[in-house]
Design a protein around this nucleic acid. Structure first.
Length: 480
RNA sequence: GGCGGGGUAGCCAAGUGGUAAGGCAGAGCUCUGCAAAAGCUCCAUCCGUCGGUUCGAUUCCGACCCUCGCCUCCA
């Protein structure tokens, strides 16, 4: 059986068949850079990293695109407040975001388009929508997408003109929420969304010229323009957090297909904007919805500041299936640390046994892991395969059943798996010379059967922040 | 009000119409001068509640309870 994904578009699990194998175009909605990303944001980004890595593991050639939203309402407000330029302000948070991504062992996406670098494409899309009569300009110079005209418009290949593909909604019978009711804009219909927002004094220097006057793009059109510019008008995978399914992704479909694509390919080839939509669930923190007032709002930096490593955070974020709400806890991070140590220990022993020998990867672990991940990325089952393998290797090592060649084969298998999990080796920490000297003195005391002195030296080492463990090959020093 | 997820051991979390993966925590054992670390073993007669279908249901159906998300710019 092949790889399967749950597609929000069809609300079911489907065989993954890319448009032009072995190439896969993958777009994930990236961050809006107005603050440091929190652990919930990064669950989605780690998820997209795992999708990319697993596709590569399965032999696909992935073009991974993640946008950086660097112009948006909150950003403009903060720029206005801080007196910085747009580039200064967003540059700082973009750098922080990329650093956090790296600390979580996420591979850098192949392209990280900035919205401000794709204004032309957005204007082009809006122009096409205006030409087709699906968009309209209001008195203040803003441009909106008319859902009504889109739905009533003549259908053409590649565009079903159906609004409500990702979520079941009866848009004629929507409850008026407070946000809608308080909307001040001059729109034909409350459900219409902005494609272009006319310049207002508070925007300061943040504006671009357009056929409709100075202004800036709406949020949804940014992703349509960037994804189609880099992946073509029709591509394989579009990922994001579950909250983006509506309205953000729904609007992307409407705009992109309504415009016939950025290059006119959607209509020409009768292909949809995106073939598979994958949405990652949110997480709770300590059992509650994450919020600053509850004190359970963590950025990656907060957790690193508490002494957790990126790989520990990453492995916890990867512990549950991506479509399930996951409860992220500090106790869980401690658990990840212990569990990773178990893997590290086993891999370390295999490496020792293999002693530099190389061999083709042993099949058992690869097969069990692939079976799990092929099933809509069932990573919990994937972890089970890994830990079953760890137990089996430990047993075989203890029973002296592994020669160098077999150890090397198992190690090769693990390395392929780790290329998907992205855990890497744990950071090793060399003890300073004075600590090593104390440990050596302790070995001498032990040899002389002066255990009182040996224990005193162990206490001394501990007081200096190190732990000494006796192994068959002599003492091992670890940071306390 | 509409739509969509969930409720599985102390905690996290897979899964299946035929009798419950994995991780953490806990217990026992091995190793050790003692430790530590590590390893091995054990650890849910039970899957929110109540009904129904079935030879058999945690798994299917119905009702109910609880919980989370979306319903116009929030991953």
């Amino acid at each position: 059986m092949g790889l399967k994904f749950h597609n929000t578009l069809t609300r079911g699990v489907e065989e993954f068949a890319p448009l032009t194998p072995p190439h896969v175009g993958l777009y994930c909605c990236g961050p809006t850079v107005y603050d440091f990303g929190h652990i919930g944001n990064f669950r989605t980004f780690v998820f997209s990293d795992v999708v990319r890595r697993y596709l590569e593991f399965r032999g696909f050639s992935v073009n991974h695109v993640m946008n950086i939203t660097d112009v948006e309402d909150k950003i403009i407000r903060r720029v206005h407040e801080t007196g910085q330029t747009l580039a200064e302000f967003t540059g700082r948070y973009t750098d922080a975001f990329l650093a956090d991504l790296a600390s979580l062992h996420c591979l850098p996406p192949h392209h990280l388009p900035r919205a401000t670098a794709h204004i032309d494409g957005m204007i082009q899309l809006i122009s096409r929508l205006m030409e087709r009569g699906i968009a309209y300009r209001t008195a203040d110079g803003s441009v909106y997408f008319s859902i009504d005209r889109y739905r009533k418009s003549e259908r053409w290949p590649g565009c079903a003109c159906h609004y409500g593909q990702l979520v079941n909604l009866n848009i004629d019978d929507q409850r008026q929420t407070e946000r809608v009711a308080s909307d001040e804009y001059d729109k034909d219909n409350v459900a219409d969304f902005a494609l272009w927002k006319a310049r207002v004094p508070e925007d300061g220097a943040v504006f671009w010229p357009s056929p409709w006057g100075d202004g800036r793009p709406g949020w949804h059109i940014e992703c349509s323009a960037m994804s189609m510019a880099l992946l073509g008008d029709s591509f394989d995978l579009h990922l994001g957090g579950e909250d983006l399914a509506f309205p953000h992704h729904e609007d992307e479909i409407a705009q992109s297909e309504g415009a016939g694509g950025l290059h006119g390919d959607i209509a020409g080839k009768a292909r949809p904007f995106v073939k598979y939509w994958l949405h990652g669930a949110h997480l709770l923190v300590e059992g509650r919805k994450m919020s600053k007032s509850l004190g359970n709002f963590y950025t990656v930096r907060d957790l690193v500041g508490r002494g957790f490593s990126g790989r520990e955070i990453r492995s916890l974020l990867m512990s549950a299936h991506y479509r399930e709400t996951f409860n992220f806890t500090l106790a869980g991070l401690d658990g990840s640390r212990t569990a990773l140590a178990r893997i590290d220990e086993c891999v370390g022993k295999l490496r020792e046994r293999a002693a530099g020998t190389t061999a083709p990867a042993a099949p058992a672990l690869l097969q069990a892991f692939t079976e799990a991940m092929d099933d809509d990325l069932n990573i919990s089952r994937g972890w089970a395969a890994v830990f079953d393998w760890v137990r089996e290797q430990n047993r075989a090592l203890a029973a002296n059943e592994l020669d160098a060649a077999r150890a090397a084969a198992e190690l090769a298998a693990w390395e392929r798996i780790d290329h998907v999990l992205g855990l890497g080796a744990k950071a090793t920490d060399e003890a300073p010379a004075e600590i090593v000297a104390l440990a050596e003195a302790r070995v001498a005391a032990k040899k002389a059967k002066d255990f009182a002195k040996a224990d005193a030296l162990r206490a001394e080492i501990k007081a200096q922040g190190w732990v000494v463990e006796d192994t068959p090959k002599g003492p091992k020093l670890k940071r306390a």
